[in-house]
Structure formats: structure tokens, C-alpha cells
Design a protein around this nucleic acid. Structure first.
Lengths: 116, 116
DNA sequence: TTCACGTGTCATTTTTTACTTACACGTGAA
DNA sequence: TTCACGTGTAAGTAAAAAATGACACGTGAA
């Protein structure tokens, strides 16, 4: 067992979170040093509202975490850092995760016909 | 160097391809045995046009490959099978891949202002 | 010929994501 | 008070992904 296993749904969420250039760069930026929102927005060249959205998606997937801190001059800064995620993706790993998928409920019934 | 590395763009494409319940189940289904389109559609309970779209996305990402074969009774069947992909995702691996991202050209200029 | 089963695509709608703009709130310093 | 800098969110639009339905084509068997 490499991963110890996120459920299929969790895996989809993690993959979807990483499957975006901006979010990939966010994770990359936070890989070394933690950072606060406004500063990160400046570094990546994106607007804060947009960054905020991406940060939420990454945090929801469990790839980063953020906490609010008070700086010396009294400002509330939200610092984000990456978690120790470690995903090993192979065909068999995917096969295992897929067993716990609940999302796409195909109705279990007969597949949609078309011609007859 | 762990991965040997898909470029950032390729990585995004692979992740996007896997970040979907149906496609995850397609890979899972093909993990053991190869299969042809119509049969796979029945097994997964999805329409062929939809499956076709997902197969294309997976194949474009290099996760599966398909080839057309002629069955004994003369029918053209397209068989798909998984490739030997092996993605190891960690914060540092992402950081490395992010360096070769070309997609989200932020214009390189000053970050979008808002208040001032 | 017609049916069953295989292949494929085009057109359209529905649903999500991505993104921008504008706003509101709080605090220390000028 | 006003400015600079931090936080967050709501509203609306643009773009991309997902999904459906209707086609067209080919072949062996009834």
C-alpha cells in the first residue's frame, strides 16, 4: 500500500484541484515557503478574488491549509502552506480507488440504448 | 528527479483526464483486461458517444491507447488498453513540473490592481 | 431486405469552472 | 479623517466540460 488510500471521490477532488495551471503554481509557490494571500497574489500575478477561489479549492481537497494570524502591526494575514500529500498514480492504484466511487450513479439499470 | 517528468502542461492534461469519475472508472475497467468501445459502454452504463468523448480525452493524455481490429465475423472493433503511466505527486514534484508551465500566461506585467 | 451489432461524428443543451468588477470590513500610520 | 494594506464575499459574465440525441456507414446472418 503506497497511498493508504483516499476514496475514489476524494481522489477525484484532489486530481481536479491539481489539474489547473494556476493551482499548480500555487502549490509550487507554497512548496517551499508559506505565504499570505495578498503577497501570493502579487507573486503569481492574479487577482485576489481569483486566488481566493483557487485556494479554497486546494484547501477543500486537503492539499493546502491556511490559518489566520495577526502580524506585529495588527493586520490579519491568512497564511497558507502545503500539506504532506503523496499521491502515487498507476492503473492499479486508480482501479482500487475507483471501487469507492459514489459520484456518477449510472442508475445501475440498463445502459442507455440508442438504435432499437 | 523522481518522475523524469512530464512537462507542466502535460501533467495538467493527465490530471484533468483522471479528475473525473467516469474516466477513473474507464481506467479501472481497462486496468486488467482490454476492451472494445461498445462492450465498455455497456459495462459502465454510459452512452457510446459519451464514452467516446472520455476515451479521446484519456488517449490524448497518453493514459490509454486504442487500435482498431477486425473480429472473426468481420466487425471492426476498437480495443483500448491502459498505458504504463506512473505519476508520483508530491509538493516538490508539483513544484518541479510547474516550472515548465506555459499555459496561464499572466502577462508577466504588474498584478491586477483593484483599490488604488 | 431487414435486423443486430460494430464503428464514428455533428449539433445542441445543460452544467461547471474560471474570471472580473465592485463592494464591505478592520487597523495602524500620516 | 484619509490612505495603505490586510481580509472576505456577492454578482454577473465568459468559456469550457459534460451529456444527450440523431445521424451515417459497414458487415454477417436470418
Amino acid at each position: 500500500m503506497s497511498v493508504g488510500g483516499p476514496t475514489g471521490d476524494d481522489l477525484v477532488e484532489m486530481l481536479a484541484a491539481l489539474a489547473n495551471p494556476i493551482r499548480l503554481r500555487i502549490v509550487a509557490a507554497l512548496a517551499g515557503r508559506r505565504d499570505y494571500v495578498s503577497q501570493l497574489a502579487r507573486e503569481l500575478g492574479v487577482s485576489r478574488p481569483l486566488l481566493h477561489m483557487h485556494l479554497r479549492r486546494l484547501e477543500a481537497a486537503g492539499l493546502i491549509t491556511g490559518r489566520l494570524e495577526l502580524s506585529d502591526d495588527g493586520k490579519a494575514m491568512k497564511y497558507y502552506e502545503v500539506t504532506d500529500f503523496d499521491l502515487h498514480l498507476t492503473a492499479s492504484a486508480v482501479a482500487e480507488a475507483a471501487q469507492t466511487l459514489t459520484r456518477p450513479d449510472p442508475g445501475k439499470g440498463p445502459a442507455p440504448k440508442e438504435s432499437t
